[in-house]
């Protein structure tokens, strides 16, 4: 136990926590944007899988990280386009569409990988380019803090910037006002001439781009290359983080960090003699517990409000 503690208290742990939080955070931000407009994006997992695959292959084929990222996003958006077409236009239940698209993406990514590379396991036959790591000038020389914050993959910084981006989008732009209005009171939106479907479409696209960046990080940063099933529930964890953060960017960031911490802990516990399986289930258990805590807290608060009102009414 003290072993574990001494691991956690190292700068290395902080660094690894930020690293593993990256994909979760992207997914969580993607979930916030979609959910704020009232259209759930359960297909985040699929977005990430496709983006990871397309990024791995795209950067290898073009020999450019930039184009690799663009191709990754384009790949992720294939899933979003399908979600939009079925969920918004053919009126398939959007949650069911998301579930279906995750199934489609899990097999589809392997199918495409085989079509392109004739390999069903990973993209190891192609040399995936990795997004560069960035040293933060000034910060990198600060002891401990520099080791934690500096030298990360550029996408990790993007992930944290995306929190600001989502906050700015939702609370400081006209589009964000419209997104929140559609999500909260669609009738009100329609009564002032806001086009509900278009707003949902745009938020699902933005959500897709954010999740795709998370996917790209997995194959072009966390690893170099795509392997089957590599997202392994991170999209769902992001979904849970957004639910815990009640669709607010900063609380969601905190929830994502908690899951990231659990993930990082599982990485270091693997180094100790704790069985692999137990280590791996930590992030998932954390998610369920976190969800329960937040949900019960919320119902408790509503109940308290009602009791208070009853007391004051009498």
């Amino acid at each position: 136990m003290s072993d574990l503690l001494s691991y956690i208290l190292t700068a290395e742990f902080g660094y690894s926590m930020l690293r593993v939080t990256t994909p979760i955070l992207f997914a969580a931000m993607g979930s916030i944007v979609a959910e704020s407009s009232g259209a759930s994006n359960i297909a985040l997992e699929g977005n990430m899988l496709f983006a990871a695959l397309f990024g791995a292959i795209g950067s290898g084929l073009t020999g450019s990280v930039f184009w690799g990222l663009i191709i990754a996003i384009a790949g992720g958006l294939i899933i979003s386009a399908l979600l939009i077409y079925f969920g918004l236009y053919l009126k398939t239940d959007i949650i069911l569409s998301g579930i279906a698209l995750n199934t489609l993406a899990s097999g589809g990514s392997i199918f495409l990988m085989y079509v392109i590379l004739h390999d069903k396991g990973s993209t190891s036959s192609i040399k995936t380019l990795v997004c560069p790591n960035i040293n933060l000038p000034g910060i990198e020389n600060i002891p401990v803090l520099g080791d934690i914050l500096s030298g990360h993959n550029i996408l990790t910084y993007f992930a944290f910037l995306s929190v600001i981006f989502v906050w700015f989008l939702l609370y400081k732009t006209k589009l964000g006002m419209h997104i929140r209005c559609v999500g909260e009171n669609a009738e009100a939106a329609a009564s002032v001439g806001i086009k509900i479907k278009s707003v949902k479409l745009v938020s699902l696209l933005i959500s897709g781009v954010l999740a795709s960046l998370g996917g790209a990080f997995l194959s072009m940063g966390y690893m170099n290359g795509f392997s089957r099933g590599m997202v392994s529930g991170r999209g769902f964890i992001g979904l849970a983080a957004a639910a815990m953060g009640q669709l607010s960017p900063v609380p969601t960031l905190i929830a994502s960090l908690i899951f990231g911490c659990a993930d990082a802990m599982s990485n270091i516990m693997a180094a100790m003699r704790i069985p692999d399986e137990f280590v791996k289930l930590i992030p998932y258990v954390t998610t369920v517990v976190g969800l329960i805590v937040i949900s019960s807290w919320r119902t408790w608060r509503v109940k308290k409000k009602r009791i208070a009102a009853l007391v004051s009414a009498n």
Binding site: K174, M177, H178, R180, C181, E184, N185, E187, A188, A189, S191, V192, G193, I194
Partner: peptide, 20 residues
């Protein structure tokens, strides 16, 4: 009768909504 307001937004935001 049922208000067409977005509760999480401010008075000003609600008033200008759709014609910001």
């Amino acid at each position: 009768q049922h208000f067409m307001l977005v509760e999480s937004m401010t008075v000003a935001e609600n008033i200008v909504l759709g014609a910001e």
